[in-house]
Structure formats: C-alpha cells, structure tokens
C-alpha cells in the first residue's frame, strides 16, 4: 500500500525537489521524522495530514527557515543550503499559512520585493539612477504587473497589502512568490479562509501556474481541492509519512481516514468511505480557522 513509485504522469527528468530523510526535532519533540518526498517537473503534489502533523515544519525545512536536524533537500539535483534567501535564489518560492505580507507596502511593492533575487542593481546604481537602473526598474514593474494581472489583483496595485480582503491577500502572497520566477512553488494552505468561489479561482490559478512550467507542492485541508488538483498526494501523520500515491489510492486508504477521524472504522463498506472523507474534510475545515 505504501506507494513510493513515481507518479504515473511524471516525465523522466531530474526531479524538481528531492527531500531525503528530513527530520526536525524541537528538543524532545520530533515534528518531522525521516520524510522522503519527490516532486517531478510539471507535477502538482499535495501534502495532507491532520493538524500538528508537521506539514508546515516540513515546508520550513525545505525552505531553509529551519535547519533540519537530519536529511538533505535537493533542488534539480543540487543540494540546497539551509538559508532561506539562497533557497529562493535557487528557485523555490513559498507562501505562508498565516499570511505574511509586507502589510505597509502596496500590492505592487510586495510583488516587486518578490523580484529581489532576479534583479541586481545595488545601492550605487540606485543613487546614480543611470539608464540601466531605470531599465531594470521598468522591467521589474512590468513583470510585477503581469503577475498582478495573472492573479487578478491589477486594479489594486496601489492599495496597502493590509487593506486587502483575506482572499486577495492569499492571492497576493502567490503573486509575490511567483515574482522570483520559481521552478517550484510551495503553497501552505492557500485556500484557508476562502469562500467556495475563491477556492475555485485559486484552483484555476494553481493549474495555470503548473501550465506555465512551475511545479507545485501544496498543503491543504480541503480534500476536494486536493483531490481535484493533485497528481500525487503524500500523507503526513505525527511527523511521519504515512503513505503517498495518486489521489484515488490515498482517498480510499483506511489509514488516512483513521488518521483524520482518530478511530478506524472496522469493516466499513467501501461505499461509506466517501462520506467519511466528507466528514474528515468538514472537521479539517473547522480546524483550519484557528
């Protein structure tokens, strides 16, 4: 049942992301224990698990915000140093579960900050304002506006990030992450707190991102979202990877249901599984609003 085989539709390139044996201990607590995960080019991979399973901690290990106690993270075949700015430089961008925008900067400026790694002008060119500086600023702004159009935030370019409604703040986080032209985008609960309509547009957005050639690794408690979207799903329970596989295999695995509901349903007939997943979903949705 524990499928470690590559997803069926993965092209046989080098994987975008390979995490091997990632372990994170906080004192006595092991939040993530020996997790392996591979994301192949063009894939949307889901990471699910009950609250406190260690999903966000795993993301933090991937992006260098935490230095993993053990294990390595590789991006397109090269090992990543555990420094957030170097990880972003290499091509992994992320969003945060509890939105972390630059609240007092405008929407456009937030995205421009995302361009930081892909631009070079330093202090001196800023002070001298030569033609090269102006050109680079103009190009950054054009790219940022492109992303704002892509995420539907263009009309709000001069608003302060803090004044955006919740759903748009999440979209702005995505736009800001995309500004670094990442090869892999990590989304931590991108639809938390969104209404069904916004969730739907976010789904479209993630597909569009994938179609532009960026692989996506997404944490989400909304099972319908995950199963619609992902080519491959991994389940994390109490810091350990319980199983991974196609949405279909994961969806029908009893251990997943047990992990979410707490007690295994002895001898439940297959037809009721869908209902249980529904229940798990509702439960999870409540919990995300913490």
């Amino acid at each position: 049942m524990t499928t470690t085989a590559p997803a069926p539709n993965a092209p046989d390139d080098t994987p975008v992301l390979t995490a091997t044996g990632v372990t994170m201990r906080f004192g006595g607590l092991t939040a993530v224990r020996a997790v392996d995960l591979t994301v192949n080019p063009g894939q949307i991979v889901g990471l699910i698990g009950p609250n406190g399973a260690g999903k966000t901690t795993f993301f933090n290990c991937l992006t260098g915000l935490y230095v993993p106690t053990e294990g390595t993270v590789t991006y397109r075949g090269t090992d990543l140093p555990p420094k957030p700015h170097l990880v972003t430089q290499a091509g992994i961008a992320r969003t945060f579960q509890n939105i972390r925008l630059f609240a007092n900067m405008t929407v456009l400026e937030n995205v421009l900050v995302g361009r930081h790694t892909r631009t070079k002008e330093g202090l001196f060119s800023a002070l001298l304002r030569g033609p090269a500086f102006r050109r680079a600023e103009k190009a950054s702004e054009e790219r940022a506006m492109e992303l704002l159009h892509f995420t539907g935030l263009a009309p709000k370019r001069d608003h302060l990030a803090r004044n955006l409604p919740y759903g748009e703040q999440r979209k702005l986080e995505i736009a800001r992450a995309l500004a670094s032209d990442p090869g892999l985008l990590l989304l931590d609960e991108p639809t938390a707190g969104m209404n069904p309509h916004e969730t739907r547009t976010t789904e479209q957005l993630v597909f569009a991102i994938r179609d532009q050639g960026t692989a996506v690794l997404v944490i989400e408690h909304d099972m319908r979202f995950i199963f619609n979207l992902c080519d491959h799903v991994a389940v994390l329970v109490q810091g350990e990877k319980l199983l991974e596989g196609t949405p279909r295999t994961v969806q029908s695995d009893e251990r997943v249901i047990a992990a979410y509901l707490g007690t295994p349903f002895e001898g439940a007939p297959g037809t009721e599984e869908a209902a249980e997943v529904e229940a798990a979903e509702a439960h999870a949705a409540e919990d995300t609003d913490r």
Binding site: H85, Q89, F102, M105, T119, F133, S140
Partner: peptide
C-alpha cells in the same frame, strides 16, 4: 525608492518573510 530600499522596508515589515523572498 529602489530595489534596495524596498528590501529595507520588507525587512522592517517582516524579516522572516523578507528572507523567504530571497533577501539576504
């Protein structure tokens, strides 16, 4: 009002998010 200035403001607003956006 430049790349570096925006990086300063980003650091002031949220240092963790700023480093996650690739700012050293």
């Amino acid at each position: 009002n430049s790349r570096i200035g925006r990086a300063w403001i980003a650091i002031r607003e949220d240092e963790t998010a700023a480093t996650a956006m690739g700012i050293n």
